[in-house]
């Protein structure tokens, strides 16, 4: 597999050097792998820190900036960051008002953020934590590691970030983040496998004429494989999977997210089909976001995230945001 890289070992550091070159509004510590708002710590503001394996760009580094995250900690490709990164980030962004960790529900992320929270608290930093677990493709039971965190992370970081920007205290920011997290459900499909730089060949074999329904953002298997379907049929399946679990009774936010290798032309066509399904089900869509936001390297495919939104959540979603990959109202 051809890749635009130097050597597999350096992909994360190389990308961080690029982020530093392109975004003077960020402080990028390449050696310690922490991306921080340059104006950190922002006085009298709760700091939002997230992180996770690399390979999901622009998540999380692309969401660092005013109105969203204060810091992001990128791990190796598809590998959670280490506790040292999160404690370093927490120390850099804590104004004295505390720090909220936004954690996607994967065993590695949870363990490393837990260790980091302990270390940060030892240093006198107040730490709150919210788990994002929105993927309905996997069963949440005692027999699994619980639902995976995927596209809902964007809504959690945007909405909680806006509330933090207004100066709300940690308890309120944490409660809002939790409310958003509980209001989000996602479902993804893969048309092709991703390829990690270290392995250099596809993570899984997906025959040319098939797709994987319920794919995870690390190439983890989903619910089932089927012969290739049309955009409309995929929209029916994915949206139904989400609505079966969510059952919204009011306005929703919609994220139609690309996995990395699917052109926007196809994504917008898919968005139209998802909207058709939501219209048929009489689900009022208040806002729609289309693009590659929570990706899986070079995987082709898409995910649908739907988030129940009350007026306060809508107001915070609309609030100004200025990051590398999400920017409006400013």
């Amino acid at each position: 597999m051809k890749m635009l890289i130097n050597v597999p070992e350096n992909v994360v550091a190389d990308a961080l050097r690029g982020v530093a070159a392109a975004h003077p509004e960020l402080t990028v510590d390449v050696a310690n792998r922490v991306v921080v708002r340059r104006d950190s710590p922002v006085a009298d503001k709760v700091g939002l820190v997230s992180g996770g394996g690399s390979g999901h760009e622009p998540l999380h580094g692309g969401f660092v900036g005013r109105g969203m995250l204060d810091a992001a900690c990128p791990g190796e490709v598809f590998t959670s960051p280490v506790p040292d990164q999160m404690t370093r980030a927490a120390a850099a962004v804590d104004s004295g008002k505390g720090v909220l960790f936004v954690v996607k529900n994967y065993t590695g992320d949870v363990l490393n953020f837990d260790m980091a929270a302990e270390l940060a608290e030892d240093e006198g930093i107040q730490v709150g934590k919210v788990l994002v677990q929105d993927d309905v493709a996997v069963t949440d039971s005692d027999f699994t590691a619980g639902r995976r965190g995927t596209g809902g992370t964007l809504f959690v970081e945007k909405i909680a970030g806006a509330l933090a920007e207004e100066g709300a205290p940690l308890e309120r920011v944490e409660a809002m983040a939790r409310q958003v997290s509980e209001s989000c459900r996602s479902f993804g499909v893969a048309l092709s496998s991703c390829t990690t730089p270290s392995k250099g060949s596809p993570t899984f074999d997906l025959p040319a004429g098939e797709l994987e329904l319920g794919i995870g953002i690390h190439g983890e298997s989903g619910r089932e494989r089927r012969p290739m379907m049309t955009s409309g049929e995929i929209a029916d399946f994915a949206t139904d999977a989400v609505l079966t679990d969510l059952d919204p009774d009011g306005p929703v936010l919609l994220l139609v997210n690309g996995m990395g290798a699917t052109p926007l032309l196809e994504l917008y066509g898919f968005c139209a089909e998802v909207r058709r399904v939501l219209d048929e089900r009489r689900v009022p869509v208040a806002r729609t976001l289309v693009g590659n936001y929570v990706t899986s390297l070079d995987m082709a495919g898409a995910s649908v995230t739907i988030c129940r939104a009350d007026e306060e959540m809508l107001r915070l979603y609309d609030a100004p945001v200025s990051t590398a990959s999400l920017r409006w109202g400013c």
């Binding site: 394996g53 791990g75 190796e76 590998t79 959670s80 960051p81 280490v82 506790p83 040292d84 994967y106 065993t107 590695g108 363990l111 490393n112 260790m115």
Partner: peptide, 11 residues
Amino acid sequence: VSSVGGASGPL
């Protein structure tokens, strides 16, 4: 713990 990440680092 400081270099591996993932679940295997802490474990």
